[in-house]
Nucleic acid binder design. Structure first.
Length: 371
DNA sequence: TATAATT
């Protein structure tokens, strides 16, 4: 009976999420229109200097958050967070096409390596889209535990240009698990690497390695899907009250099914005492507005992303600048979607020393700007 | 023995 109730609740929950996404999401940007100066001699657009691919995005980042983060650098021609066509889940990567090549360069320099929650995002130029670069990812197992990422790359680089490589490690000890991934620029290169290396012993190794095409990571088991849903349920949009009650109802069911408690008492009890503090609506989307005081005159938006991003979903950041000098006036605002993440960020960052300055961080109140 | 890299 519990499982049936859980199943119903999950179906119900997906419908609610779907409705919320369509209200809040803002939708994917349309295709980039040909832009005069960027037309090549063959009539094709050349966006190689403006179009970026962004990888390792947090699973729960929305299109709006994505646009807000990259829009803080400069004017965006188009951007898209890529989602699974059927489930609507983020695939963890996206594209940003800037109007100005200088802004694309700036985005790589300032946002590549930015830590957001548990992820370190990667920002790089997108290669021209083509069938020849798809399905070029290899799964490698049986690697010697002593082999480094660099050594694995050296082994594979004879077959082509490597785009990414990774060796999986034990989360506790940090020691190699003997498995990894190699993404080549071209699928043909990956095919050649399989022919050349599958079943072969690396120099000095005791065992042969297995090299094959990697599975697509979007296929999940029912268990993994449930786990995922459970994790994402607490991270969503703080939203209107009827969504809150829905959220807690589902959470209680999941708590029963998994025997774990997700919400801290403060996240539940805290809500009732917070009328009028921090919670904002408006065009930027609902969320908890945080006041950040004692920023340096040189502070910019990327500082706020770096400070608050690790704590959870950030929808917007703003540095308040002097109109004439364009220098920061010493304060800014950050909007976060979820109360518990905002509270954690405030608790952690209030009193935080940034260079020579000690930050004051709190929920925004109506009369703080006079201080 | 499995990570969200081509719209």
């Amino acid at each position: 009976i519990l499982l049936m109730a859980l199943q119903r609740a999950i179906i119900n929950y997906f419908q609610i999420l779907g409705a919320m996404e369509s209200q809040v999401g803002g939708g994917p940007a349309g295709p980039a229109l040909p832009n005069g100066p960027l037309l090549g001699t063959n009539g094709a657009t050349d966006d190689s200097k403006t179009n970026l691919i962004v990888n390792y995005l947090p699973q729960n980042m929305t299109q709006d958050e994505f646009k807000s983060l990259f829009g803080s650098i400069g004017d965006i021609e188009s951007c898209k967070l890529v989602r699974d066509k059927i489930t609507g889940q983020s695939l963890g990567y996206g594209f940003v096409n800037y109007s100005d090549p200088n802004d694309a360069d700036k985005a790589i320099n300032t946002l590549n390596g930015l830590k957001l929650q548990t992820k370190t995002i990667k920002v790089s130029y997108a290669r021209p889209s083509s069938a020849s670069i798809r399905d070029a990812n290899l799964y490698v197992s049986g690697l010697p535990k002593t082999m480094s990422q660099k050594e694995m790359e050296q082994l594979f680089s004879q077959y082509g240009r490597i785009i990414t490589s990774r060796i999986l490690v034990d989360q506790v000890t940090g020691v190699s698990r003997g498995v990894g991934f190699i993404r080549f620029d071209k699928r043909i290169e990956a095919e050649e690497a399989i022919k050349g290396l599958n079943g072969q012993k690396p120099l000095g190794a005791a065992e042969p390695i297995t090299v094959k095409f990697a599975n697509n990571p979007s296929q999940k088991t029912g268990q993994a899907l449930l786990t995922h849903l459970y994790q994402s349920s607490a991270r969503r949009y703080a939203g209107p009250l009827h969504h809150q009650t829905q959220r807690f109802r589902l959470d209680n069911l999941l708590n029963m099914a998994y025997g774990v408690k997700r919400f801290s008492p403060i996240a539940i009890d805290g809500m009732s005492g917070l009328a009028g503090v921090g919670l904002s609506g408006g065009a930027a989307g609902a969320g908890w507005c945080i006041f950040v005081y004692n920023l340096s005159p040189e502070a910019d938006e990327s500082v706020l992303w770096q400070l608050f991003g690790p704590f959870g979903a950030v929808t917007n950041v703003k540095v308040i600048r002097d109109f004439t000098t364009n220098k920061c006036k010493g304060f800014g605002f950050v909007t976060m979607t979820n109360y518990d993440e905002a509270a954690m960020a405030i608790a952690s960052l209030n009193g935080y020393r940034l260079g020579e300055r000690v930050l004051q961080v709190s929920f925004k109140t109506s009369k703080q700007h006079k201080a």
